[in-house]
Design a protein around this nucleic acid. Sequence first.
DNA 1: CACACCCAAATTGTCGACAATAAAAACAAT
DNA 2: ATTGTTTTTATTGTCGACAATTTGGGTGTG
Lengths: 232, 232
Amino acid sequence: MLLQNPTKQTVVTTADKVFEQMQQAIVEGDIASGSKISEPELAKRYQVSRSTLREALNRLEKCHLVERKANVGSRVVDCTIEGLLELYITREALEGMACRQAAMNMSDDEIKHMQNMLSEHANKEQLKAGVAYYQEEGDLDFHYKVILGSHNQQLINLICGQLYHLVRMYRCQFGMHSPRASKAFSEHAHIIQAISDRDGELAELLMRRHIAASRKNIENKIAQQQLEAASN
Amino acid sequence: MLLQNPTKQTVVTTADKVFEQMQQAIVEGDIASGSKISEPELAKRYQVSRSTLREALNRLEKCHLVERKANVGSRVVDCTIEGLLELYITREALEGMACRQAAMNMSDDEIKHMQNMLSEHANKEQLKAGVAYYQEEGDLDFHYKVILGSHNQQLINLICGQLYHLVRMYRCQFGMHSPRASKAFSEHAHIIQAISDRDGELAELLMRRHIAASRKNIENKIAQQQLEAASN
DNA sequence: CACACCCAAATTGTCGACAATAAAAACAAT
DNA sequence: ATTGTTTTTATTGTCGACAATTTGGGTGTG
């Protein structure tokens, strides 16, 4: 499955299962953003004891999907515009660096695979004839490959293991279904070119611009929505 | 206390206390890097039940000080040279961006405070007359202020709440007692200048160079040590 | 001697109950 | 009626015990 977190290990324990279910529920908004989490209630819903539910909550906390205050309880993270912009700023920094490292550390084979992937995406795009085909799968697939290509475990863990859960959550809840399809595609192509040229500096620059453009696109949309809301 | 994590909330629960004690023990090497953690043993040592010890372990996991495998157990993170370099690469990306944001978002008052802090450090330096005074406290204090100055909660949490525990651990275990004293000091001064000029681009560039220089300094030391080891 | 298999011991995962804390409700006083 | 206080209720934190899994050793066989 393309969308899956590439660093996810096989699920073994029941807490793992509860974690996965809750993760999906939170990302997709079935458990509302900002809502309080009642341990007894959810334990009953998922048919587990409070201990294992708390274990699941701890993992959700690790990927910044829930926040806990001592003696008060857990809340699902609040999706705010500020939070979204902060997330993109952070992505810009981390993925930019990951891209630079990828240009330095990816094997020739890995680069070939990425180029092939892009070609497949191009074919799909032709098939769907200009329709904004370039949906999450393709986009996430590309970004994951670059991040993994950095061969930097610290970066990989931070981005794939933590940030991207939030990214997916925001995409779901704000209905951001991978905008800028064609532009994003050509930007990806240029980034891959820089990587295969082993030009780390350019690769980082392009990746940062790519993410920054996405952020600005969001900012514009938000501003537009607020204008529309004001004109009612 | 200067060295303290600025994002740390007041300790209330017993798991918090165990977490803090273990954190310090791990950072300072009293619990050996790479060693396996026996839940029953440590629970006895800290006089708590396994549940609360596991709660403490979960928090240690959140700041990347221990790693856990299902049905196998927890290990203290392994301090390797590769890990150290990866950590600095990540710091370069995150703190660079934080510095850029600080230049954009810090209040004039915050900037003044930071300038005052640097002056105090300068005085201390004169007192100790050129001795490599510029120890951890001053260095961490400066970096923390910049990070907090970004006013970006995502960056603040990632760096202060997670990365810096590892940074302190490596500093302790590799005996890196803030080298490059005088150089680091003047670099800090230039960075503050860029921030007060509201020059985000330059601020980021300087911070990245500052951290990269620190990383290269480490790489050289390592290479040197390996040479010495080889000549025995 | 090597290898596979099985068994025993120890460790981790899960559970339900109790204690400590915070939120909510009821009440009193101005 | 509103504010401040007390009591009640509900939720979270902690504990010890049991179940499931892994690990190490021992035994047997090729």
